[in-house]
Design a protein around this nucleic acid. Sequence first.
RNA 1: GGAGAAAUGGCAGAGUGGUCGAAUGCGGCGGUCUUGAAAACCGUUGUCCUGCUAUCGUGGGACCGGGGGUUCGAAUCCCUCUUUCUCCGCCA
Length: 424
Amino acid sequence: MLTISLIREKKDFIIERLKIKNFDAEDILEKIISLDTARREKQTRADLLHGEMNIISRDIGSLIKEGRQNEAEEAKEKTYKIKEEIRSLTDELGPIDEELRSEIIKLPNLPHHSVSHGHGADDNVKVREGGEITALPEPALPHWDLIKKYDIIDFDLGIKITGAGFPLYKGKGARLERALINFFLDEGVKAGYREMMPPVVVNEDSGFGTGQLPDKEGQMYHVGLDNLYLIPTAEVPVTNIYRDSILNAAELPVKNVAYTPCFRREAGSWGAHVRGLNRLHQFDKVEIVQIAHPDRSYEALEEMVNHVESLIVKLGLPYRIMRLCGGDMSFTSALTYDFEVWSGAQKRWLEVSSTSNFESFQANRLRCRFREKGNKQTQLVHTLNGSALALPRIVAAIIENNQTGTGIRVPQVLVPYTGFEMID
RNA sequence: GGAGAAAUGGCAGAGUGGUCGAAUGCGGCGGUCUUGAAAACCGUUGUCCUGCUAUCGUGGGACCGGGGGUUCGAAUCCCUCUUUCUCCGCCA
């Protein structure tokens, strides 16, 4: 959510920046500014009347104390009209506030100046790449065949238990999954992140705080009876730790890492490219989250990008890092890097991490601020997060790229975690 | 799930209708003293909205778990929701 002060002061700047995201903000901004003006005018008037009321009420108090009943009654008479006026102002104010809010949350975050204009994935900019794409023994099997061949992930049983998109990990498949989770968490802790294990269902306030609600309501599983949501990412609970809080500048940056299962309804997004592990309703992910000082949030982003990259390098997967163009970026992000690994048998790049700086966009919704030592004023923090990493596509790439014809070689860094070198 | 009690500033904890944004203590910050530190003493100490001011500031308003109500006036009374605690029941 953009701050109202920015909207008031930099309307034209916002219009220009949002063109990068192919978003026409002009009409919304006009509306916001006129609503805001009306709101302030009425609020000021109401405050003034409240002030008057406070004075009269105080006087009535002392009049009664002094036993001057008649004068007190006269003063009461005076308040009735003022009270009524306040009430009608308040009644008008409610809908204005509501509409103002609903308009403001329609505005996406402003993209960072390095973000290029574009309409979709084809316009993303390759920042760098690494690893080697090696030839696989023929016939190279896609992961959905390999998992059956070695009986490590079972979609049919997942369907039986729950439904499509809820796989059952079996034997060495389950061990591999757990090994990756532990490896990612350990690496995060080594990099200075504090490990967290948050709830995986959240309330409405949390959903709103990180921007899933109200616009992406249909993407989350909703527990109607208790009005709770299954998290689509650990970003939601972990960032909401800091909702409604004021941090000391000295505490920044706050760095947390968390493993959670993630739940996504993925309504309407099934198609040709989502076979097997490519898209699931439930999957495992380790997420890194930082709360940073605004002056240093891009350093933090850089650091996070390097961390994610190091994980992929250690797993020995060919990868590339893409800077998303305006059209492919999320609503809330100011700058996003996507990490893609090469899936040898599918012969395509799979997105395994999205690492973003949200600047103050989430912080404003979260009301998460910080204070510089010796300074009275608070200002909004910057929030960042990134997958480090999302498991299913990593698993897909590992088992496709490391197939030997007689088995699947486990990456060396994982062997201490799995306890075996081959899946066969 | 049943019965009862409670929710106040960073924390502890007063306050049961009238200058209460809120006593007091602790903590924090600034100062005096000291070679330095501690102790002691003095001062200061929330958030949000808004007006004025180039700035330090300063005026007004709101906020005592959330929402609603009664009243000229609510931290204080009423309703409701949420949460916490105690007892009982159930239970990984």
